[in-house]
Design a protein around this nucleic acid. Structure first.
Lengths: 216, 216
DNA sequence: ACCTGAACACCGTTCAAGT
DNA sequence: ACCTGAACACCGTTCAAGT
């Protein structure tokens, strides 16, 4: 015996499982230790501190997005960007608790860097200058992660999330309840505002952004 | 005596001061109590729980944005949206610790509702249908808050933030250090990527989004 | 109505010690 | 190298009690 039963990867996986199961509040160094049947301080053998654990979990999930979607024929640059952004969205909605981790630390890991390179490549294929390509890449990241953050903020962060249909319906009900007599446009647009957390809104915003980016 | 020395407003102001001073980690119910020279549980007289305190702080700061910038001549709808978005950005960069609070709870307070109504109004003036106006309004919020979240994620969340110039310079230095031989586009675009956290990038992304929204 | 005292069930982290 | 025991300085929250 005395052979260790797990490694850093296992620690991170355990943390992700706890996050999925109980949401952001449930994740703690001590919870990971308990799940691995070890004392809390043993975790520090594998991870420098809590922030490093959070970062590793975020990196792990971000790596689940299909980066290969960003490569392809230059003429298809737009489809490549859109499909990749949807892949990021899909993966993060499967692990909603990760979104807050992703937004609360610098996005400078190897996976984030690779994503940046892939986006720069796609926008170069679109004929953009390096400067505009860099601005466009970040704008796409902002849209993607910003949308996810606002969407997930309305949930408890546990996986699996309620189906989009249910989340939209809950929003619609909330709007209906709030008699917005002083806000006529809100009252009129409430049914659409209920769908703000959905994939259609995500696609629409991204499409408008890309329209504006390549507009002559 | 026995006259209370403070009210809910004072509690929220104190929380904001602690947040500005020490960043997100410094804010706690107990820290607020200490600052008000009272036992921790006394705070619960004014605030239901920690989440309500966070929400009140977020609402307070969001209310500092100049909503009147959204009103004006219909022909100036675009300028109205841009100036308001910049106002939100300015206020939140003065209180960077608030950004994470804003992104981690539903945006359904009265201030957020009023902002939504103002945006719907501006996009109606732009000639958009109610449906597109609602989609456009959310896209603008996503850009604004998403940008802020990613920007602030690279700081310690304490006010005042380092000047933009310094934050950009720090990013540039970090990029220079990372020899990105395997990522040619990143290496080439590093000087622009360093400015991702700046106002120019914010304006550029918003402009492209609005271009795409009103494009014929 | 508003506050205190006391307690409970948690946190992250450090350090010395054991194997 | 990896883990434990013990401790420290924190959390949010509840409840009974006092004024």
């Amino acid at each position: 015996m005395s052979r260790r039963q797990f490694d850093r990867q296992h620690v991170v996986d355990t943390a992700l499982a706890i996050l999925d199961d109980g949401g952001p509040d449930a994740l703690s160094v001590r919870a990971v230790a308990t799940a691995l049947d070890v004392r809390p301080n043993a975790i520090y053998t594998y991870v420098e501190d809590r922030a490093a654990l959070d970062g590793a979990v975020a990196e792990r999930v971000l790596a689940m997005a299909d980066l290969s979607l960003l490569t392809g024929p230059p003429s298809q640059w737009r489809r490549r960007v859109e499909r990749f952004a949807l892949s990021v969205r899909e993966v993060l909605l499967l692990h909603p608790g990760v979104v807050s981790l992703l937004m609360s630390a610098p996005l400078n890991g190897p996976v984030a860097l690779s994503i940046g390179e892939g986006l720069l490549d796609a926008f170069a294929d679109a004929g953009l200058s390096p400067r505009d390509g860099a601005r466009a890449s970040y704008a796409v990241m902002v849209h993607t992660l910003g949308s996810l953050a606002l969407d997930v903020a309305e949930t408890d962060g546990r996986a699996p999330l309620d189906p989009e249909e249910d989340r939209v319906a809950a929003r619609a009900a909330a709007f209906a309840q709030a008699a917005a007599s002083a806000m006529p446009r809100t009252a009129a647009a409430a049914p659409i505002m209920a769908t703000w957390v959905g994939e259609t809104q995500f696609r629409w915003g991204l499409a408008r952004l890309l329209d504006g980016i390549v507009r002559p």
